[in-house]
Design a protein around this nucleic acid. Sequence first.
DNA 1: TATTGCAATATTGTCGACAATCTGATTTTC
DNA 2: GAAAATCAGATTGTCGACAATATTGCAATA
Lengths: 240, 240
Amino acid sequence: MSGTDFDPIVDTTRRAEIVSLLRRAILTGKLEPGQKLNELRISEQMRVSRAPLREAMRELVQEGILTSIPYAGTFVIEVTVKDIEEAYSLNQVLDEFAIEKTWPNRTEQFFDELDRRHDAVKQATREEDTTRQIETALQLHGLIYEWADHSLLLDTWQRLTSRLQMYFALHQRARNEPVPSVDVHEEYVRLLKGNNMKAAQRHARAHIGLDFEELVAFARSLEKRNAGSEPVGRSAGGKG
Amino acid sequence: MSGTDFDPIVDTTRRAEIVSLLRRAILTGKLEPGQKLNELRISEQMRVSRAPLREAMRELVQEGILTSIPYAGTFVIEVTVKDIEEAYSLNQVLDEFAIEKTWPNRTEQFFDELDRRHDAVKQATREEDTTRQIETALQLHGLIYEWADHSLLLDTWQRLTSRLQMYFALHQRARNEPVPSVDVHEEYVRLLKGNNMKAAQRHARAHIGLDFEELVAFARSLEKRNAGSEPVGRSAGGKG
DNA sequence: TATTGCAATATTGTCGACAATCTGATTTTC
DNA sequence: GAAAATCAGATTGTCGACAATATTGCAATA
């Protein structure tokens, strides 16, 4: 706006560092759903005290990917079919809104960034880096939220994204094979560049829907496996 | 739904207690927007150590009503016109979705609860308890979220509610006079009991809209007052 | 006079230790 | 032998103190 724009100095607190580490571990599946986070063990591994670790965990609980039971422990959230369906349906609603808000803000810079992120997805696909593939796809998808000029919406979506990333990562690890190399985003990007907003909104619904169908089927198989009392077994041990 | 339903045991940690206290202080305006939260002072006033206080503050930061700058402090969020407009527009979108999801779940119990909460609003109005009036109105409004059988949506709305309550409280304190005693919820309740979902959705939009119009006008006057660099003055002192 | 450098102070971030609570095995009791 | 009571171990919650950083006031300097 006024002359040169400087980015704010990066905040270097252990807490922030820990949040990043933990979030990544959860979203990539290194920490499995239902797994308990032992404070003492993690703090020793990270060479930090429990204070910043606990504060970081509080943040992630509020972010919705950890759940806490007083005096019992803090656990990675379980993944149920219902959770995924909820994320799916809310995502549809928010997508429609985000496209509506972003539509008038589409500048040349927007289109450039759109292509850039699309390229990132394609490259990750070529390299068969599944984790990165999920990340880049979600980043491409997040563009309409970043350009909506609506911080509350962006916030809401980022919270949703954490869960989505976790679900997709779970799925990928279970399938244990590279994702189809066919580019499913081509149409999406094309429509976002076009002049038909309604069409873009409709496609966003349908397109995301397809990805989700498989995800829900996968989650359903998970639940069938250990049906009965609990949604997913609470593995205590994990890794040494 | 199997036989007798028991509520879970209340978790008694200082942290949870502090979260409640702080949230209430912020939402009722006892802690003003922009105000800095001095950890030492608050921990002494509450007779607790800084550890649980800091953890509680982390939760409220993630909840969106506090904002934190490393090594500088934690502050109550500012209220800008844009914030309120964002809350407004997102609320519209979510309302529509919530009504759609709740619609098939409306049982006799739902209608009873609807009346009960409506009565609570009317009583608070009679007693001219403005703070309680805001609370009860939001609780009435929250019913469609609680019955939507969509925990993610409910979560999202509760986060939004915190902000709304803060905004409305600000407004009330500024006007410094009781709210109009005319019941604006009569029509809303009637439509939720009826058979026309689309009509209920439309009304929700328009009705909430009216309340917001005044709120936005108020916020605009606030910003005009101290226009220039910062949105709202960061009062350091507060109360002794 | 405006700006820079420095010291003193206040506040936040982090640490290690202790208290409260839960869990599981062992012992006691019928 | 089974159920209840008890006790030891492990883990979470809380505390007080120290370290790192930012802020404020004042002196030095151009």
